[in-house]
Amino acid sequence: MNRPGDLAHHTLSVLVENKAGVLARVADLFARRGYNIVSLAVAPTDDVAFSRITIVVDVESAPLEQIVKQLFKLINIVEIQELSAFDAVERELMIATIEAPTETRTQIVELVNIFEGKILAVGPAAITVSLDGAPSKIDDFETLLRDYGIRDLQRTGRIALPKMDRSVPVLRAVGDS
């Protein structure tokens, strides 16, 4: 199974105009050129005129360079950043409902605590948990949960931003006055 953390995957952070049909244009391009999308997350940015689409692409289906160039031909795409795990901060959210009869429930709770996740709901034989973090951490958590029986699971797909340049002090203005 393809996971967002696999090496053959690459993350593209795509700034688009926030207009009707833009997501369809992006999805359509991937479909018609035979590129594979591993995950996709879309939401408006702080400027309502733009949205950011974070796409994890399968670079084995096509060279990344071609994918980026073809994407950039879409008129509504304003900017594309290629983000590697080394120069980006990446997060993903997962929620899952796990089989949790009384005999294993404490073990699951313990796992959730170790991973610093949250318990969202508790039922007689199952609990719903959430975890946000780096995609690899979510992968590990999901693997461990699998032994207990996963009833439902949903991941958001990855969102990412470039890391800030460490050599530039971010809060330089503080001492100026």
Partner: peptide
Amino acid sequence: IDPAEHGK
């Protein structure tokens, strides 16, 4: 003129 043609 089309960058995507380069290397396609």
